[in-house]
């Protein structure tokens, strides 16, 4: 039974509420009946050893698992009181409002401008595109470095810059929640640090759920941490408690490095 405690919602409605979410890949039960509430404007980290299901769970939140033929999702993911997996919910719109940044930076083979503009264009978001692009690049702390070369190929940027470009691209469609799947694991320490600072700033406007295999990173940047193991949620609580005085033996064993 998962131990969940001290999740402070304040007086705001939660950003996401997962209830009994399970994911099956064919016969394999990859994610097992997870209940998890994500508070608004906070950073929630999902940690656990490889294969524990944290990325799979993350992808439930924006229906990316729909794209995998063999995946089956049961349970409920509540977003503004509506089940994201309900009958008449359009996954395309879900993904606009719940964005995702991936592990390896994956900019499109287009210019920097076109990368950021892609989201608004395909979603029919009108208005001043130039301003939207600039705003998104500023929010991703990349504007100063690229403002004079927006028409250059995105591939001309360094790894850290590309990842910030991907973040800008995601922000351009004005999501409420940003999901991040190990966003800094392919980057060098300085680039990682910039991404972490960025996450801290983004928290004010967005809700962030981040999967990371780097415990120290989770400890540095998250407000709440959920520990998953073999598809189950073992413990979910405030980050400082998870890392100084966890309640479950398995959590203790993982964060002290005795396995994982």
């Amino acid at each position: 039974m998962p131990t969940t405690y001290d999740i402070q919602l304040g007086d705001r409605e939660p950003a996401l509420v997962a209830q009994g979410v399970s994911v099956y890949y064919g016969e394999k039960h990859a994610v097992k009946h997870i209940d998890l509430t994500v508070p608004r404007n906070q950073v929630v980290a999902l940690i656990g050893p490889s294969g524990c299901g944290k990325s799979t769970l993350l992808r439930c939140f924006n229906r990316m698992n729909d794209l995998i033929g063999t995946a089956r999702v049961t349970g409920r993911v509540d977003f503004h009181g509506q089940d994201l997996y309900g009958d008449r919910v359009d996954p395309v719109e879900v993904r606009r409002r719940i964005g995702m940044v991936f592990q390896k930076p994956n900019p499109f083979p287009k210019s920097i401008y076109d990368n950021v503009a892609f989201g608004p264009r395909v979603n029919g978001i009108g208005g001043d595109l130039d301003r939207l692009v600039e705003e998104s690049l500023r929010r991703a702390a990349l504007w100063d470095e690229v403002s004079d070369r927006l028409n250059d190929s995105a591939y001309a940027l360094s790894g850290g810059q590309q990842q910030r470009l991907c973040i800008a691209r995601t922000l351009a469609v004005r999501p409420e929640i940003v999901l991040m799947d190990e966003p800094a694991s392919a980057l060098d320490p300085i680039a990682t640090q910039r991404i972490e600072e960025l996450i801290y700033e983004l928290k004010q406007e967005y809700t962030i759920v981040i999967v990371t295999h780097n415990m120290q990173q989770a400890a540095r940047i998250s407000d709440y941490t959920a520990f998953l193991y073999m598809g189950e949620l073992i413990e979910y609580g405030p980050t400082e408690t998870i890392f100084t005085n966890p309640r479950e033996d398995r959590t203790e064993a993982y964060v002290t490095g005795r396995f994982g």
Binding site: M215, Q216, F243, T244, N245, P246, T256, G257
Partner: peptide, 9 residues
Amino acid sequence: QQPMASDLR
């Protein structure tokens, strides 16, 4: 060593 939890304490 970035100790955590009971090691840290």
